[in-house]
Design a protein around this nucleic acid. Structure first.
Length: 660
RNA sequence: GCCUGGGUAGCUCAGCCGGCAGAGCAGCGCAUUCGUAAUGCGCAGGUCGUGGGUUCGAUUCCCACCCCAGGCUCCA
């Protein structure tokens, strides 16, 4: 046979000489493809460009700039990082170094327990640039696990991985380091550096270079707190300088949206250190926005058939023994208070108390579904290192409801709940959702297989019915029941997990909840937990980032600010404010003792949706000049009554602002 | 809790191999009266996170603790 045939991604076949590599194929297709080629997907498997192709192979060239191509070059950059570190710290042990979203990392155990400092990053980066300039080829070798153990005799972390591969442990795969079974693959990119790796890699280090080391961090070996803590270096890497710069720019944009920064700049809330870590105080401007959120939530819940309950902030330890929280989550709870004849805990969850309300008298099937709602404030002892502004906080308020229903009602209840959740999220300006469905962990669960199956199916059916894209997280459910978590995508493409809908077979049993059915028999209800915002604090933080502080008019602390051109317009400005306030708007006024431009600028920086400027013409014609947030040019001479209606309508509509 | 970095005026930050604490913005006062993103002048403002140590002298060096940031772990 003088030629062999391979199939390309478009379905075409191409004849190439026997012994051709993937790189030869790329070259045959075109110079540009060869230039961009980093690796190849051969019969579905990612391989090096040097892979020799066989007759009948299906081959796709993996190019720089594609998602797979980026993974390859990030992983290869991680190898260069490891090589640089072993040059600078002879005797350093290297553990794992995968590609991750936007970049890569590598974990090290430095000789003598040394640690990286920030200053080391520049040294390492310079060393890496040297390695890249040397254009070292990456070469692959296959060997038995025995040979591998010999190669890595002085690399205990590699030995551990190889040993695990040999014993057939599955999670070695997850480390992305090796092939399965009795052989392992290694890559050398010089005589001095070899790493255990499944590959593929770029042909040579010269293909790399658009990277930056970002930070150092401690990370436990295998993510296990009981194992040694290694020194991790994070970096980002891209196919071109422009892609790298775009990413760094994106990071800057995200930083500008940081809710902690915005909360301070806009005087919304603060975290006084006198108060203690992870605890926030809401200032008036944040407080009014929060009140709007809460009012809206309550109104929606009222329409949705929920009943409102209120429960206290501390409870006798016996309650949490009954619920099981003390057994499972004691470490995450605030410490107990001893008083009178009992032990009391600040509440970490509202559900046990809602169960007490259910249980306060016998229940009939006619009452179900019973939907108990509370904006319930809870306290959880989050470990110091995990706190993060509003997103991870120790005291927060859940928009929490517990729904008690029969098995027969489950499916319908979940479906209507999902619709309710998405309506609520849409009202706050989110439009892209994805979901995760977490299923039973066979090692750890309560309740019958039958009920697990039935409720998981109900959750799945609801997701299908609303056409919501979802991923299944096998075994990720809590022990008490399956759940749906809903993620939203924000204005700059980040996803945030917000809402959760959870089935619970545990609480009804532990609290011995019952209802009397139409058959006059006692039955156990199913309980659903659900929170839409999750926590109001966290949700508000996400909103601030989503809108970059430009809260929609209905949530904005100050919805309009009236500025007179001269101070002899201040009387009319006050009148404008009065008219708007009578329509329910929150309106500020600023007297004309500074130049107009300065006052407009301040109002813009305060992100007020409407700046209203009034001068001679407006006083004469009873109009306002409307400078809307985000608009290019102000409108002049808008009739005051017309604007008042427009503003009132916009607030009532709960719309999202333009351009988000 | 662990690793790395940080905490200086209300905010953003400079200073500091030990020698009297600085700027811009914000605030206050006076002047300015202006049509769409910064008017001028002046004043005031800090236990340099907290506590201990070294030193003639500590914001600066050392130790402990608190708080913040980025990771790890955790997240009912």
């Amino acid at each position: 046979m003088s030629q062999i045939a391979v199939t390309l991604p478009d379905g075409a076949t191409r004849a190439i000489p026997p012994g051709s590599t993937a790189r030869d194929l790329a070259r045959a297709v075109g110079a540009r493809l060869e230039r961009d080629a980093l690796a190849a997907r051969v019969n579905g498997e990612l391989r090096d460009l040097s892979t020799v192709l066989a007759d009948g192979d299906t081959v796709a060239i993996v190019v720089a700039g594609s998602s797979e191509g980026r993974d390859v070059l990030r992983h290869s950059t991680a190898h260069v990082l490891a090589q640089a570190v072993t040059r600078l710290w002879p005797g350093a042990k290297y553990a794992i170094g995968p590609a991750i979203e936007n970049g890569f990392y590598y974990d090290f155990d430095l000789p003598g327990g040394a640690r990286f400092s920030d200053d080391d990053l520049a040294r390492i980066e310079a060393e890496m640039r040297g390695i890249i300039a040397e254009d070292q080829p990456f070469t692959r070798a296959e060997m038995t696990t025995e040979e591998g153990l010999a190669v890595f005799a002085d690399q205990p972390y590699k030995v551990e991985i190889i040993t695990q591969v040999r014993s057939g442990a599955r999670d070695a795969e997850d480390l992305g380091e090796v092939a399965e079974g009795t052989s392992v693959s290694v890559y050398r990119n010089s005589d001095a550096f070899v790493d255990l790796c499944r590959g593929p890699h770029v042909p040579s280090t010269g293909r790399l270079g658009h990277f930056r080391l970002m930070r150092v961090a401690g990370a436990y070996w295998r993510g296990d707190e009981k194992r040694p803590q290694l020194q991790r270096v994070y970096g980002t890497a891209w196919e071109s300088t422009s892609a790298l710069e775009a990413h760094l720019h994106q990071l800057e944009e995200a930083e500008k949206r940081d809710h902690r920064r915005l909360a301070t700049e806009l005087d919304l809330l603060s975290f006084p250190s006198e108060l203690g870590g992870g605890l926030a105080v809401w200032h008036p401007r944040g407080g009014i926005a929060r009140k709007e959120m809460e009012d809206f939530s309550r109104a929606r819940h009222l329409e949705g058939g929920y009943e409102f309950v209120v429960t206290p902030h501390i409870a006798n330890a016996r309650l949490y023994e009954t619920s099981g929280h003390l057994g499972f989550y004691k470490d995450g709870m605030y410490p107990p208070m001893e008083m009178d004849n009992g032990t009391y805990y600040p509440k970490p969850m509202n559900c046990p108390m809602h169960c007490l309300i259910y249980k306060s008298r016998p229940r009939s099937y006619r009452e179900l579904p019973l939907r108990l709602f509370e904006l319930g404030t809870v306290y959880r002892y989050e470990r110091a290192g995990t706190l993060h502004g509003l997103l991870r906080i120790r005291g927060f308020t859940q928009d929490d409801a517990h729904i008690y229903c029969t098995e027969d009602q489950l499916q319908e209840e979940i479906a209507s709940l999902l619709s309710f959740v998405m309506d609520m999220l849409r009202a706050f300006g989110f439009s892209e959702f994805t979901a995760n469905l977490s299923t039973k962990d066979p090692q750890k669960y309560v309740g019958s297989d039958e009920i697990w199956e039935k409720s998981t199916e109900a959750l799945r059916a609801a997701l299908e019915r609303f056409g919501l894209a979802y991923a299944i997280k096998e075994g990720d459910a809590a022990f008490y029941g399956p759940k749906i978590d809903i993620d939203v995508r924000d204005a700059i493409g980040r996803t945030w997990q917000l809402s959760t809908i959870q089935c619970d077979f545990n609480h009804p049993a532990r609290f011995d909840l019952e209802y009397v059915g139409a058959d006059n028999q006692h039955h156990r209800p199913i309980m659903l937990h659900r929170a839409l915002f999750g926590s109001i604090e966290r949700f508000f933080g996400v909103l601030l980032e989503h809108y970059a502080g430009n809260l929609p008019t209905w949530l904005a602390p100050e919805q309009a600010r009236v500025l007179g051109v001269r101070n002899d317009h201040d009387g009319y400005a006050g009148e404008v404010a009065t008219v708007l306030r009578a329509r329910g708007a929150r309106v500020g006024l600023e007297a004309a003792d500074e130049p107009l431009g300065a006052r407009i600028r301040r109002a813009k920086l305060d992100k007020v949706p409407y700046v209203l400027v009034v001068g001679d013409d407006d006083v004469a014609a009873r109009t306002v000049g409307v400078n809307a947030r985000g608009s290019e040019s102000p409108e002049r001479g808008v009739a005051l009554e017309a604007f008042a209606s427009r503003l009132a309508d916009e607030i009532a509509a709960h719309g999202a602002p333009e351009g988000v």
